[in-house]
């Protein structure tokens, strides 16, 4: 073992090792977090003359109808995108977990997973063409069934569903991957015992798979929710937030207030509300996961 002076040296090395990360953390995370809270109390002017206005931005938010719209859009997107990402991902994982040759499972898993690696930007550029009203591939096939034509990206009612479909196509593979790993950690003995007792496949899923997978499902749920609430890339390239405000998300609104209107004070105030939401979600996750650890 190291002697006392060695222990002091060890502590010194410890501080040295965390120094770069910690300086970065102070300058680019903690500092900015405090700054954003401070800026949210001001009418900020990039070119000098920032004035303290206290809670005025809060009053302005409460009266901002566009803010209500973008929050509504963000919630709509979050609820449905998260639901379908998880539901499809779980279904795929359960099907992939069935008996099949190893190479085949790997191949299918790779196809489902690949879109996760592709930038939202590229995905949106491709889907813009697929969604085109008169020339798009999707409307062509729907028309064969007597449906449409649907104005996917220019109809207020369809634009968010379009964003959600594309998002599920891109992201459900990640949910699938995590669920598959979770499923593979469930001992096969449980299923064999249930089979001996004559449990139907549905009962086996409801009574064994779902309860044992619950922590994984909850974890994926929180990850996807936090991601969905911050949706930006997906929408800005696909629709730019339009038509009107029909697909504008909170982060797009913050971005525009801050970097197009240069209203940094108001943008910071909105950012604070979003941060509050994410904080609540994270704390909920922490609280629930502790309860579960206690349970098992």
């Amino acid at each position: 073992m190291w002697k006392l002076s060695d222990r002091r040296r060890e502590a010194l090395w410890g501080f040295l090792f965390i120094f770069p990360s910690y300086v970065g953390f102070m300058v680019f995370v903690l500092g900015p977090l405090i700054a954003v809270a401070a800026i949210s109390l001001t009418k900020f002017d990039l070119f000098g003359g920032t004035t303290f206005i206290g809670m005025e931005n809060l009053g302005r938010m409460l009266g901002d109808d566009r803010l209500k719209t973008v929050y509504g859009n963000t919630f709509f997107f979050t609820v449905f995108a998260v639901f379908f990402n998880l539901a499809v991902g779980l279904a795929l994982a359960v099907l992939l977990n069935k008996q099949m040759p190893h190479a085949l499972r790997n191949f299918l898993r790779s196809i489902y997973f690949f879109p996760v690696l592709v930038a939202h930007t590229y995905v949106a550029v491709i889907w813009q063409f697929l969604y085109a009203r008169d020339t798009g591939v999707i409307n062509y096939y729907l028309h064969l069934f007597g449906i449409g034509p649907i104005s996917w990206l220019t109809d207020q009612r369809w634009v968010l569903p379009s964003v959600i479909i594309m998002d599920v196509w891109k992201n459900t593979g990640f949910a699938m991957l995590i669920f598959l790993a979770g499923l593979q950690s469930i001992p096969g003995v449980y299923y064999e015992a249930a089979q001996i007792d004559g449990a139907s496949p549905w009962r086996r899923f409801a009574r064994i798979t779902l309860p044992l997978l619950r922590p994984t499902i909850f974890f994926v749920l929180v990850i996807f929710m936090i991601g969905a609430i911050q949706v930006f890339d997906t929408i800005i390239v696909l629709t730019g937030g339009g038509p009107g405000d029909a697909s504008r998300s909170v982060v797009i609104y913050i971005y525009e207030q801050a970097f197009q209107n240069f209203d940094l004070g108001y943008a910071s105030a909105i950012a604070m509300t979003l941060f509050g939401l994410i904080l609540v979600l994270t704390l909920l996750q922490f609280w629930f996961s502790r309860r579960w650890v206690h349970y098992e």
Binding site: E10, W13, Y22, V29, V36, I39, V251, I254, F275, I278
Partner: peptide
């Protein structure tokens, strides 16, 4: 490595996981 404040510093760093980078961009 053992150094004073290790736990607190680590938890503080960990807490920053929930700060989205859209928050701090301004």
């Amino acid at each position: 490595l053992r150094f004073p404040g290790r736990r607190v510093l680590f938890i503080l760093l960990l807490a920053s996981l929930m700060i989205p980078n859209q928050m701090t961009v301004i």
